[in-house]
Nucleic acid binder design. Structure first.
Lengths: 186, 186
DNA sequence: CAGCCTATGTATAAAAT
DNA sequence: TATTTTATACATAGGCT
């Protein structure tokens, strides 16, 4: 399905292997999605690259409902935190500049009398200390935010880890309940 | 990819839905196999039809191994990061105090000549700016650290979510004890 | 239903960006 | 490295057995 027929065996050239991986992985995930939609089926797909990166798809129904609901709640919380962090990061720049400007309005550096310079110095010092205080406050807020996010992610990790074992128990229960009519085609 | 373009939404006609399911399912499994071979990747795929029939593919048990290794590596990295963060947090306090002290050694505030005061002012300004720079540097490092930790925790979450599926796949493999593709009536 | 046929829509290999 | 482009190989929808 390309300019040339490709034999199905490990691609030796590293860069074309990477390009092919990226394309086929996307294609596979899209196909999995289509199958689940077209045929009303549950599909779960996991791909781990040779370098250890993980990609996955899962049609979220029955089997993963609980996990999904939990995950969405957390995703929302985390998204809100993300938003706050970004506002702190990018907002602070303009906020600080505005503060300095507002303090400098009305001062004229061309006025060279000593009194005027003393006054300007005081203005600038005020602006500087306000700016520093604001900078410190914002950075501390950002750090608090990040620490909270970290805590939530750790909690989520713990819950997910326990879910792994709950799944196994559920699946085994499902199998044992229907063991009377259990058939396995190999 | 057929005589007519097909919209990606549930196929209402039951029999064509069944035919499409069968064809696309096989196609998907073949694509999964090709990806794993061509790009040296680990792939796990699970498909459950609406009627409960189960189909799966897995590129092999090395999948679990890779994920385990991946998980351990990350646990170590996270621990190292934790350590760094703590050092930055609690270490910075003493580091800053030491900096200020070293700059002040030799100055005497009781000496009231103007020249001496000018000199002292310069000393203090130097100490202050160095201190500020160090403070900012350390805070930025802390923020970077926390952000990196956040990224790693997110990745870890992804891996754990996928483990849910891995466990199910493993159990199925145990049941089938045979070829990678099989059918199982529950 | 499973499989074959074939016209047609898609995926993607190679190359360029 | 990911994305876009183009030419080609592949997958598959509808039909038929």
């Amino acid at each position: 399905m390309g300019r040339k027929k490709l034999e199905i065996k490990r691609i030796e050239n590293k860069s074309s292997r990477q390009v092919t991986f990226s394309k086929r992985r996307n294609g596979l995930i899209e196909k999995a999605r289509q199958l689940s939609v077209l045929c009303d089926a549950s599909v779960a797909l996991l791909v781990v690259s040779a370098s250890g990166k993980l990609y996955s798809f899962s049609s979220g129904d029955n089997l993963v409902k609980i996990l999904d609901r939990y995950g969405k709640q957390h995703a929302d919380d985390l998204k809100a935190l993300d938003h706050q962090s970004k506002a702190l990061n990018y907002g602070s720049h303009y906020e600080l500049l505005e503060l300095v400007d507002s303090k400098l309005v009305g001062s004229n550096v061309k006025n060279v009398s000593i009194d005027a310079l003393v006054q300007l110095e005081e203005h600038l010092e005020t602006a500087l200390s306000v700016t520093r205080a604001k900078k410190t406050e914002l950075m501390l807020k950002l750090v608090e935010n990040l620490k909270e996010k970290e805590k939530m992610l750790k909690e989520e990790n713990q819950v997910l880890a326990s879910q792994v074992w709950i799944r196994v128990a559920q699946f085994q229960l499902q199998v044992s309940r229907s063991s009377a009519t259990f058939t396995c085609y190999i």
